[in-house]
Nucleic acid binder design. Structure first.
Length: 739
DNA sequence: CTAATATTTATTTTT
DNA sequence: TAAATATTAG
């Protein structure tokens, strides 16, 4: 394979003890980091606590290997979990040593697996152009199988079947390997059959789900020794990010690949393992030394992010977990102890939101950036109360973690059209859009298509094409279906002729799909039309429709960057890997956090994972942490009386400052001990507000509330009568004048 | 086939 | 509460 960035034809390996070429990539590393970077030979486990510079180590290490000509770029494999970290790593290595880095096999587990699998697809019974299913397709497929098998899918939700199958795949178990697994009562004990049928259907469709990417790779390696050998020989150096999050399949995959050269470096933190419910095995990191005898274990404990107080609190909290590899975060920054962690109790969720938003507001007025603050919640539903309050106060914010672009219905529909044009035999795409927009094709017509497709073992598209030649269907649906088929074929003919961006736009237009949304009067329809326009321009960025589809399958971007200066509101899971000056941790109540369900389902292990989540939350903060809990919370319409989270009591007394609402916990509980000492967190300085220039009676528009008229003006605050939302007080910078 | 009504069920979600 | 889904009446 010719490579423009080749260093040598066949680089001689340097003797292990040779003096390494030094360079910018070794600058500014502390002794432990330096050791982690320069111990290139043999297995290395880097236990990297929060904020100890793990990305720095990974990138410097890769740069070090390449700059010392220890291996060609393409003999290095670096795997991450997210596209975001892959991108960041690529950029940073590039900055250190230039474009040589481009040749490295650097990417997510899944993208690397696809790359390998495309080359050897036939060895696992697929064609090289196999498609990768999204979760909608998977559910649809399972639903079909359940129907075929006469299993009531209302009683056994397809989602649940799917997640059971996924857990098996996470553990590297194919349908033939689950024999030893408990059958369970699920779907009358037929779960294993369903798994087998599901896999058969996938093969028939020439498709894969996400789990398959890894699983098929494993099968490939285990059944074709020569292929395994090729990759084992190729990858002299392997680097793994977030090792604590690997599942069994990924672990086996890595272990196979690393077997020959044994130069594998895994970086992770057992204390930040928060994805076990998705198949991640902390065991992988705990077992590393026995799996790779002679492994060097390097601990990075010097934290360059948080104040000593925050570190003390986080360390004390996590010390309550059993079976840790054990690390102690040590402050690595100069400066004082920092502010104590504030723990505050409030009456209810509304008051909690008021308190937090008030703090944010005064910090903002004091000149603090909104983007330096974050509200981290346990579960999505908690964001609402904060949102309402922030809107009310006119504080710009961004909730991160909503539906992702490529998961929106309109985007998936549009992509189904594109898929169908690129590969008409894509049955799932066919089903998704045959009757969208409504063409008058109902159950009856679709049943007929399905029946024929099954009887002749042909695709749905093919079956439909035959069917419209017959009188099987009533005239109306027959016409409709014929129109659909000819549309698809016509677009297909234009695949070569038209630039693919134009073709995509044409498809959306002629299919009537775009029109469907344009005509829709629902409030979110306009946004959907916009999304579709955005999709078309995204398509234009790619070489071809095929490469676009591949990109989408693999890169379900969730990198919504908060544009402008905004407070971010997100889940604790979403915050992993990020940092903020000030972190608000609301909802520290038994049942909410730790979440009762985690406790019910996970028992003691579940509790430990919740505690790790708390640890992740605390260690996101550079300067300040503000924890709060409400005595009363309304959950699904009923009021609950909550006790403070046990995690609150696990924080060391010296690091916290407790503050209780007057009258709350007055009986002498620990929250009455320290009376509320009003103590402003930030100095209040008037923030220079933008000159509004609004007039009473003027018509304005607000993102959330819609159109309205100004009723009263109070400095930069406006009292507005919204046509739909009623009377609200908002900040002038949040509304714009209309016509 | 569609639209209106009833019922259900509420963690976390890197790809 | 409210969103998502299932049922049923038109």
């Amino acid at each position: 394979m010719p490579d423009p960035f080749a260093l040598d034809d066949d680089p001689p390996l340097l003797p292990a003890r040779d003096v390494p070429v030094s360079g910018p990539w070794l600058q500014g590393l502390n002794p432990e980091q330096l050791q982690a970077v320069t111990t290139t030979e043999g297995p290395v486990l880097v236990l990297s606590g929060a904020g100890t510079g793990k990305t720095k180590v990974l990138t410097s290490r890769l740069a070090h290997i390449l700059a010392n000509h220890k291996a060609q770029p393409w003999a290095c494999l670096a795997v991450t979990f997210t596209n975001r970290s892959a991108r960041e790593m690529r950029e940073r290595v590039g900055q250190l040593i230039g474009p040589v880095a481009d040749g490295v096999w650097l990417g997510t587990f899944h993208s690397i697996a696809v790359r390998i699998l495309r080359r050897h697809a036939e060895a696992v019974g697929l064609a090289a152009n196999f498609t990768i299913l999204d979760s909608d397709d998977q559910v649809r497929l399972i639903k079909q199988i359940l129907t075929d098998e006469g299993i009531d899918w209302r009683k056994w939700p397809p989602q649940a079947v799917l997640s059971a199958i996924q857990r098996w795949k996470d553990r590297g178990l194919g349908p033939d390997k689950v024999a030893g697994e408990p059958a369970g009562e699920f779907a009358a004990g037929r779960l294993k059959d369903l798994y087998r049928l599901y896999q058969e259907r996938l093969k028939l469709l020439n498709a894969c789900d996400f789990g398959d990417l890894l699983l098929h790779c494993l099968t490939l390696f285990l059944t074709r020794a020569e292929i395994l050998d090729e990759y084992q020989s190729r990858f002299r150096y392997i680097l793994v990010d977030e090792y604590q999050d690997t599942n069994v399949a990924q672990y086996l995959w890595l272990r196979l690949l690393a077997q020959k050269h044994r130069n594998i470096c895994c970086v992770g933190d057992d204390d930040q393992s928060i994805y076990s419910w998705r198949g991640a095995e902390v065991g992988n990191i705990l077992r590393f030394e026995s799996d790779f005898p002679g492994a060097a274990v390097i601990r990075l404990e010097r934290n360059y992010r948080s104040t000593p107080t925050i570190l003390a609190a986080a360390s004390a909290l996590i010390a309550n977990n059993q079976g840790r590899l054990g690390k102690t975060l040590r402050p690595g920054l100069d400066g004082g102890q920092g502010d104590p962690i504030r723990v505050r109790s409030v009456w209810d969720g509304v008051e909690e939101a008021r308190l937090v938003a008030g703090d944010i507001d005064s910090a903002w007025r004091a000149g603090e950036k909104l983007s330096s603050m974050a509200i981290l919640v346990r579960a999505g539903f908690q964001t609402r109360e904060f949102e309402e309050r922030l809107i009310g106060m006119g504080i710009p914010y961004k909730v991160i973690g909503g539906p992702r672009f490529y998961e929106r219905a309109e985007i998936r529909d549009a992509m189904a059209y594109v898929r169908l044009v690129v590969s008409p035999d894509d049955g799932l795409a066919f089903e998704r859009v045959v009757n969208l927009p409504k063409r008058g094709l109902g159950d009856a017509a679709l049943q007929a298509v399905h029946a024929l497709s099954r009887a002749r073992s042909i695709s749905l598209f093919e079956a439909a094409r035959l069917l419209i030649e017959t009188d099987e269907l009533k005239p109306k649906p027959r016409q409709a279906l014929a129109g659909f088929i000819t549309d698809i074929m016509r677009w297909r003919d234009q695949l070569e002729a038209l630039p693919h961006g134009e073709l995509a736009a044409l498809i959306l237009d002629q299919s009537g799909y775009l029109d469907m949304w344009k005509r829709d009067k629902a409030p979110d329809a306009a946004g959907r039309v916009e999304n579709l326009t955005e999709l078309v321009s995204a398509i234009e960025e790619f070489e071809s429709l095929q490469s676009f589809l591949e990109h989408v399958a693999l890169v379900m971007e969730n990198d919504e960057k908060a544009e402008g200066d905004r407070v971010v509101v997100m889940t604790l899971h979403g915050a992993k890997g990020l940092e903020f000056d000030t972190v608000f941790l609301p909802g520290w109540e038994e049942g909410v956090f730790p979440h009762s369900r985690a406790l019910d389902e996970g028992g003691a292990k579940g509790l430990e994972e919740e505690r790790r989540l708390a640890y992740v939350g605390l260690t996101r903060a550079k300067k300040r942490v503000l924890i709060s809990f409400a005595a009363n919370r309304r959950i699904y319409n009923q009021w609950q009386n909550n006790l403070p989270s046990r995690f609150v009591d696990e924080l060391p007394e010296h690091a916290v400052h407790r503050q209780a609402d007057k009258g709350l916990y007055a009986g002498g509980g620990s929250y009455a001990k320290q009376a509320a000492k009003p103590q402003p967190l930030w100095d209040t300085v008037k923030r220079p507000g933008p000159e509004g220039g609004f007039r009473v009676g003027e018509r304005v528009f607000h993102q959330k509330f819609g159109a309205g008229s100004v009723i009263e003006i109070d400095g930069d605050k406006l009292e507005i009568a919204f046509d739909k939302a009623g009377m609200k007080k908002v900040l002038d910078s949040f509304v714009e004048k209309t016509g």
